[in-house]
Design a protein around this nucleic acid. Structure first.
Length: 466
RNA sequence: GCCUCAAUAGCUCAGUCGGUUAGAGCGACGGACUGUUAAUCCGCAGGUCGUAGGUUCGAAUCCUACUUGAGGCGCCA
């Protein structure tokens, strides 16, 4: 007897009268006094559960089947039949229902058969995957990751495994988590009375990476098209619906490329991902559209077939000024756009993802390429309605003198990044890249507003449960 | 890090001006009914009112501190 997933049973042609085995968790049980019970079994392979009909002639009907509650685990052997009821085309008439594991104390089982808030489910993150919402999020997240790899692979990119541990504290993206093997109760001191990191595991200060970009640039200078895709860490005390201390980021980097090549790649990648989700997860997306955000499917569909808006930072500032809206933070050329500005731009003014380019150099990172105007850098952010910045990227400063000058201006030590400067000395080429926040992308695609709900076990300030 | 709000049954919430035995819906359990679909109907159980202090004859209710959670802002992806 062959073992089938629910997805195979519901979404491929299985011959009627086939005898099959099915393994999963019970979503719901309904009894009929006609002498049978309906058991909805879900194994996460797809959104829908399959209906198993258990008749009271089964040996364990009274002793076990009538005691099945939500999330008991079962192995069902049975026959595929055309459904006599409404709501499904086929169902399984069971010959054996083996209860592998019962649920203790169903009255206090955290994920009962009722609607729960996402805030509550976050407190039981090890069990929340057993809800329609979180299993749908998990499947869509998986499709997103797979399609990112697929798109980049099809387009000749190499996936580079840049290090998680870094000795550079100048990656330019905020506070870092320290990595140490020193005994914190007995920290070694040097002659100056400071902590002696020479005695630490790596014989220097080390941190968790905030970005793989600097490392991947060196691979870009040999393999042309590369990307990193892995976890990144920020020790910022950010408390918002769109920040995590540990999150995943995709960072493509392309050689012989400028900002427009970069923006084109980002838009093309994101649209590919949108389309993949629409194609592969229609059931999950339908659920999000019904219960989370009505417009979530139509929005993706229209975006796949239209262009992202593009405007320069200077234009954006001018539009903000022209809007005559009262913003908390006053607008003038040179400010860093705050969320209210970004929101107004992409939600009200444009109404779809918007690529903003050429920001003032003073509000951007040291490695971004200086434009000919001497005031702006070739940076681009993609702002998405409801989420804000989902992509941040730039053409990199490939000119040695310019980069060194910029680093000095910002008071950075060129010693630590001499290897990075080397890339500008030995066969440098114009190149560009960007970072996509995976969780922000998942959030945008699913309509799930809090980023803590689109990663399995969220790590945020003051919270690292499970 | 700053600001705001919240914490009462397994979950979601109500609880009047500080006053007798703290209520409802869902879930769980028991029953009725039914090829059922978040089934429906009836019944029953379930509470240290976040923690610690304080005010008061009397505190879920007022005050203080703490803890936890949420939202907004900042930082960013």
């Amino acid at each position: 007897m062959k073992i089938f997933t629910v997805k195979e049973l519901l979404h491929t042609e299985i011959e009627i009268d086939s005898i099959i085995v099915l393994k999963g968790w019970v979503r719901n049980r309904r009894d009929s006094k006609a002498g049978l019970s309906f058991i909805m079994v879900n194994d996460g392979s797809c959104f829908d559960s399959i209906q198993v009909v258990a008749e009271n002639t089964l040996a364990n009907y009274e002793s076990e089947i009538l005691k099945i509650t939500k999330d008991c685990s079962v192995i069902v052997t049975g026959k595929v039949v055309k459904s006599l009821g409404k709501g499904q085309s086929i169902e399984i008439v069971a010959t054996i229902v083996e209860v592998v594991g019962f649920v203790e104390n169903p009255d206090t089982y955290p994920v009962s058969l009722k609607r729960h808030t996402v805030e509550y489910l976050r407190e039981v993150a090890h069990l929340r995957i057993r809800t329609n919402l979180f299993s749908a999020i998990s499947r869509v997240r998986n499709t997103i990751c797979f399609s990112i790899h697929e798109y980049l692979n099809k387009n000749g990119f190499s996936w580079i495994h840049t290090p998680i541990i870094t000795s550079s504290d100048a990656e330019g993206a905020g506070e870092m988590f320290r990595v140490t093997a020193l005994d914190l109760d007995k920290l070694p001191r040097n002659l100056e009375g400071k902590i002696d990191f020479k005695q630490d595991f790596f014989a220097r200060e080390t941190f968790l990476t905030v970005s793989g970009q600097l490392n991947v640039e060196s691979y870009c200078m040999a393999l042309s098209k590369v990307y990193t895709f892995g976890p990144t860490f920020r020790a910022e005390n950010s408390n918002t619906t769109r920040h995590l201390a540990e999150f995943w980021m995709v960072e493509p980097e392309i050689a012989f490329a400028n900002l427009m090549d970069n923006a084109g790649l980002a838009e093309s990648l994101i649209k590919y991902v949108f389309k993949a989700v629409l194609d592969k997860n229609p059931d999950d997306m339908r659920f999000f559209a019904e219960f989370i955000d009505k417009g979530v499917v139509t929005r993706l569909e229209s975006l796949v077939n239209s262009d992202f808006a593009m405007m320069s930072y200077t234009d954006a500032v001018n539009q903000l000024l022209k809007s005559n809206k009262k913003f908390e933070n006053p607008v003038h050329w040179g400010i860093d756009l705050s969320s209210e500005h970004e929101r107004w731009l992409c939600e009200e003014y444009v109404g779809r993802p918007t690529i903003v380019t050429d920001y003032p150099k003073d509000i951007k990172a040291f490695y971004m390429r200086l434009n000919d105007d001497g005031k702006t850098v070739a940076a681009m952010d993609i702002l998405a309605p409801g989420i804000g910045e989902i992509v941040g990227g730039a053409a990199r400063e490939e000119r040695y003198d310019m980069l060194l000058k910029r680093m000095n201006e910002m008071g950075m030590s060129d010693k630590q990044l001499d290897w990075y400067l080397d890339l500008r000395r030995f066969g440098s080429v114009p190149h560009a890249g960007f970072g996509v926040g995976l969780e922000r992308l998942v959030s945008y695609i699913t309509g799930v507003q809090n980023i803590r709900d689109v990663i399995p076990f969220p790590r945020t300030s003051k919270s690292a449960n499970f």
